[in-house]
């Protein structure tokens, strides 16, 4: 049910009220999305003129390119690793904060902070902290020279952006886990306590299972976020390097489109990413629906 039982008359007024948002949505969302679709099936002739229909050719070019698959592989690794890290950490903190021991409010207060920090700022901070020749982690290199160098070693670079991304997502996950925990009726944990279940036992048997809807919701959000919103971190921290080791899908679209000026290839890649986001969102809706059924 979208509307109310009690409504006002005046279709023109209603249209006038919703028109601004519809115009924005059309101009900056649907038209560009349609254009991406169009570009991904056409090619601009080298000497100007109308775009020409080329069918699946752009997609074929993209899929035949080992660099693209490299980018997909890295994106998936990056998304899974940072999701697991951020959610695991946030869940642990939320479960223990929810014990409400003295001081829990102070912890909670600080755990929210990273949410405020812009991705590129996180990137720059982590770039310094994990720099091979200055900062914090460089101490490792004093013991084992050359052990850590994200500027040279691809694996180190992936670890770096994964840690940065996970750090910046912990706060968001924490907020949702804590809200989820607080929505579990106290009487349930109290009943479990009367049944003789201890604190850790209750976390495992009562609280964690009841958090399942929040958990799945967050998995989807984190994955989507890692696929889509990681541009800021990568651009500042590694700029896709070294040797394309951190060339995430988003970053590749950006560099192919704006640095390489190949709109059609960028559009085809955008479309693949869009499909990915849409399917993740659909999965989320299924879970949202399930959640409604449970309650």
């Amino acid at each position: 049910m979208t509307g109310k039982r009690v409504t006002f008359a005046g279709t023109w007024l209603a249209a006038l009220l919703i028109a601004p948002q519809l115009l924005l949505v059309f101009t900056f969302f649907y038209w560009p999305a349609g254009e991406a679709l169009y570009w991904s099936f056409t090619l601009e002739p080298p000497f100007g003129g109308e775009n020409q229909w080329v069918g699946w050719q752009n997609f074929k070019t993209v899929f035949d390119d080992p660099l693209y698959w490299n980018s997909v592989r890295i994106s998936i690794t990056f998304a899974l690793a940072s999701t697991a890290l951020a959610m695991g950490m946030a869940l642990l903190l939320a479960l223990f904060v929810d014990r409400q021991l003295p001081g829990h409010k102070a912890y909670r207060f600080v755990y929210f902070w990273p949410y405020a920090v812009a991705a590129p700022a996180v990137g720059l901070a982590f770039r310094f902290i994990f720099a091979p020749d200055a900062g914090f982690v460089s101490a490792l290199n004093q013991w084992y020279p050359g052990l850590w160098n994200p500027a040279r070693d691809g694996i180190d670079a992936v670890i770096l952006i994964t840690l940065a991304n996970a750090w910046s997502m912990i706060a968001y996950n924490f907020i949702f886990f804590l809200a989820g925990l607080q929505s579990i009726p106290r009487s349930l944990t109290e009943a479990a306590a009367m049944d003789g279940s201890g604190v850790l036992r209750r976390m495992a048997d009562i609280q964690f299972p009841l958090l399942a809807p929040t958990f799945f919701f967050l998995v989807v959000i984190n994955l989507t976020d890692s696929f889509v919103n990681s541009f800021g971190i990568v651009d500042i921290t590694t700029a896709g390097g070294p040797a394309r080791a951190t060339d995430l899908m988003v970053y590749k679209i950006y560099s192919d489109g704006f640095k390489g000026k190949d709109y059609s290839l960028a559009a085809a890649q955008s479309l693949v990413l869009m499909l990915l986001v849409v399917s993740l969102t659909f999965i989320q809706f299924r879970f949202v629906e399930r959640r409604v059924h449970y309650s």
Partner: peptide, 25 residues
């Protein structure tokens, strides 16, 4: 309802997946 869904579905179209054409617009 259609309008609501049109607005809601833009969640699935983050800027990052439509940067090039949005820039063109």
């Amino acid at each position: 309802s259609l309008f609501f869904w049109l607005i809601f579905v833009t969640l699935m179209l983050p800027l990052e997946v439509r940067i090039v054409p949005t820039y063109a617009v």
